[in-house]
Amino acid sequence: MATLRSEIAGIVTSEDIVRVRHMVRDAAVRLSFSLVDQTKIVTAASELARNTLEYGGGGTVRIDELADHGRLGLQLIFEDRGPGIADLNQAMQDGFTSGSGLGLGLGGAKRLCNEFEIQSKPGEGTRVRVARWK
């Protein structure tokens, strides 16, 4: 698997969520994703960026444009050093929220992508990796 391009952005304010949406949109356009696929990965990025900000206290996203045996894909890795998630199964359920959101972020982002991985340790932070392939 080859990385065609990679960039990292900080997520510290709510304006950064908009910036992440635009960066992910630009990457999806570069990879010639269909309009629906662009919209899905950008929406997933928006949900995860907001989680990073609201629950992780801010963090970073790495946006990787990938090529694997001729297949093009977009991988997003969100990392924060926030309080972490004690019960991952519970956090993945629709409707569960510890904050003011709708509780659709993690489950919704998973449905909008082809690959989804989450690692979290209480007190150490959370790392979410998603990927969508063309």
Binding site: L35, V36, Q38, T39, K40, T43, E47, D94, L102, L104, G107, G108, R111, L112
Partner: peptide
């Protein structure tokens, strides 16, 4: 609402 947005919203669960 754009069609791509509608498709995505339903998949998101909203």
């Amino acid at each position: 609402m754009r069609p791509a947005v509608a498709i995505t919203l339903v998949e998101l669960g909203l």
